[in-house]
Design a protein around this nucleic acid. Structure first.
Lengths: 206, 206
DNA sequence: ATATTATGCGAGTTATTGCTCATGTTTATA
DNA sequence: TATAAACATGAGCAATAACTCGCATAATAT
């Protein structure tokens, strides 16, 4: 289905875990094809089209995924996991000064997005159409919580920071992906991230 | 159709202008029904469903709209027009101090969204699925340009400001609409909006 | 009043997607 | 090697959506 809704099928997981190598490869192939379709926006994000593009039988696809939304969900899962692990790596190395840590987090965040700009942008754009807004929102909230915890800052403020930064990065991703990694841009992100934390008491300026 | 794509039908306007009162009313009824469906997320956003919900024949609907995306587009148009007129009203009254003007703009922006939070959120969420991302992005860019022009600030920075503010407001809209109008929140928006403008040279702090 | 134009209707056709199941093949296991 | 389990296939039916067209009614013009 599509821009619509459905019978409320809440199964958004995988159906059967592939055990043999060929099936593992196949699932991967399906995900790759789905990612390409999403990126290129050339074809509808549909089980039939994904299967065709992957060169895989539609029956095989349904053996592992209950529907197109599950595939989308898997793609989101990957992206979210990337983000999370990048952030955790930095938070774990907590011997740096706070200001630098924030900066590192921003750089990692931008990297995680700029890595596959088109795919990431489309993922965020299309998720709501598949009822997967919460998926992303929850990931964002969890991110904010773990940052707040690691840095000893109030969660509520960090959440706003994250929302602001994410808003800018996603918008740039869709319109101006090339400038994402410039130092000027990172500087601006830094200022934005700092803004909701209150005048100054929390962080030592960079 | 759905979450997918189509034959590339770029007619996203109205088909025939209603001339008599009854047809004008009908078009309005259709738009209302579409808005409700979008808000409630109860039914697929489909020509058939919209027509049914509006209590209007499907044939009548197609007399005025070439498809569901055109209806969506019309809803977006309205929302965007609201935002724009609210902003222009404030920019026109340019006898205030800059700092207050920025604050007024933020309040107007929040109001325009908080007015019908669910609808606005869904509009932003679903637009990409109908190929209407640009619609919103263009409106945002135009907004930024006119603000930059009116306030004599560099467009590039204002654009980032707008992206950040919009990101936060949309995220809050979806998760925490009740806090949108609190003073604390507006204060944080203010700080965020100011952040990308550089250290201080442009504005007199509020 | 009559002609003309605008409007409204909805059954029905076409197109697309969702998804299963009977069948055949490959891999693992005893 | 034999048996079982996992895997792969795709024709095809059910479900949903897009969209038209012939016909009826209402508004407007002359």
């Amino acid at each position: 289905m599509g821009r619509y809704k459905k019978k409320e099928k809440s199964i958004v997981t995988i159906r059967k875990m592939p055990k043999q190598r060929r099936s593992i490869v196949m699932v991967e192939t399906i995900l790759q094809a789905a990612a390409h379709i999403l990126e290129e926006d050339s074809q509808p994000f549909t089980t039939n089209h994904i299967a065709e593009r992957a060169g895989v039988s539609i029956g095989s696809l349904y053996q592992y995924f209950p529907g197109a939304d599950a595939i989308m969900s898997a793609l989101i899962e990957r992206h979210v996991a990337d983000e999370r692990s990048a952030a955790e790596e930095i938070l774990a190395a907590n011997n740096k000064k706070d200001g630098d840590m924030l900066r590192d987090l921003l750089i990692a965040f931008v990297d995680a997005h700029a890595n596959a700009p088109r795919l990431t942008a489309r993922l965020h754009e299309m998720a709501p159409g598949f009822g997967l807004q919460n998926h992303l929102a929850n990931a964002r909230d969890a991110q904010a919580a773990s940052i707040a915890q690691a840095m000893g800052l109030p969660e509520k403020n960090i959440l706003i920071s994250v929302m602001a930064v994410e808003g800018v990065v996603l918008a740039m991703l869709a319109n101006n992906p090339k400038q994402l990694k410039s130092n000027d841009f990172i500087d601006q992100l830094y200022a934005i991230a700092l803004a909701p934390l209150g005048s100054a008491p929390y962080l030592s300026g960079r």
